[in-house]
Amino acid sequence: MTEQSAHTDGTTGPSSGTDPATETFVAHRNLLFTVVYEMLGSAADAEDVLQETWLRWAGVDLGTVRDRRAYLVRITTRQALTRLRTLRRRKESYVGPWLPEPLLTAPDVAEDVELADSVSMAMLLVLETLAPTERAVFVLREVFDLGYDEIAEAVDKTPAAVRQIAHRARAHVAARRPRETVSPDRARDALAAFRRAVETGDPRGLLDLIAPDVVLLTDGGGIVRAALRPVVGAAEVIRVLERIGTSVSVRPAQINGHPALLLHRGGELDTVIALRLDAGLVTGLYAVRNPEKLSRIGRETAMSR
């Protein structure tokens, strides 16, 4: 294996150099990470999958590889599917609601509307409702526009079966995803109103912004205090928000390609809050408090299609 070096996002992986296998892996690393993250919703697990992918890739005879990008995607997808099945068992014993690991993203992620939509907290939760193979097929087809033959090799299915799976997954996601693409300006306005309500300790000012059937999910992972069940309804959500108090400092950030809020308490990051907007109203609030999921917020994570 080649010498390890640090990447700009703080993770480790093969160092760049003249070795063709290394150069190919480094060139496609951001894409591979994005594929795995969309399949798993966990950056930590995505990094593990990339390490496993590299170990397998380093042993491949490149002379037998016609399309290196496709070959890497195939290895990565198979490793991600194995990890996804393990994660599903782990989530069954998770304390309280499970939310994806939030990532601080660069402006270029938000500028790619399709990429930002695919990695949003709302979309990742929709993808959680798919079976593992359905999720892999949907991500590879709808987000990365891979051909059915290429996907078939990655998931060990026939192209005909992949077409059926893709159709089923697309219909499933369409019925559950946000009903409209919200403009960045509209999202920022909603977030600004939400921020003012939190900072003033008067969330009742949000009544015109919050949908009557809004759902708040708080992920503490059994490590920090959080609601163990979804909080449903504007009145109940506002009661929870009132308990935040004015002891937190709030600042905006780009999380998973969308405007979000970072809540700090005592100088330490306490909570990341992302919003789901439908028809101009906040229909979902996702509050990640599990400290194990907040370790990457201090640095931007590179993503690409």
Rank of each mutant, 00 (worst) to 15 (best):
T2Y: 10
P14C: 03
T18W: 12
P20F: 05
A21H: 01
H28F: 15
L32Q: 05
T34C: 13
V35A: 09
M39T: 03
L40H: 09
G41V: 06
D45E: 15
E47P: 05
V49G: 08
Q51A: 13
L55E: 13
V65C: 01
R66I: 13
R68Q: 14
T77Q: 01
A80P: 04
L81E: 03
L84D: 05
R85A: 12
L87R: 11
Y94E: 08
G96T: 00
W98P: 01
L99T: 01
A110V: 06
L115A: 04
A116P: 04
D117G: 13
S118T: 04
V119L: 08
S120C: 06
S120G: 09
M121F: 12
L124Q: 15
L125V: 05
L125T: 11
E128M: 07
E128R: 15
L130G: 03
L130I: 03
T133A: 11
F144G: 07
G147M: 05
A152S: 09
E153T: 12
A154Y: 05
V155N: 07
K157M: 14
T158Y: 11
A161G: 13
H167F: 13
H167Q: 13
A169K: 01
R170I: 00
V173F: 06
R176T: 06
T181S: 14
S183D: 15
P184N: 07
V198D: 06
V198A: 07
R204T: 14
R204F: 09
D219F: 02
I223K: 13
V224H: 00
V224W: 02
R225H: 11
A226Q: 03
A227Y: 07
G233I: 10
A235S: 11
V237H: 01
L241D: 10
L241A: 07
E242D: 11
S247K: 13
V250M: 02
R251H: 09
L263V: 02
L263T: 00
G267F: 07
V272D: 01
A274Q: 15
T283G: 11
G284R: 07
Y286Q: 05
V288C: 01
R289Y: 01
N290E: 11
L294M: 00
L294P: 03
E300K: 14
T301D: 06
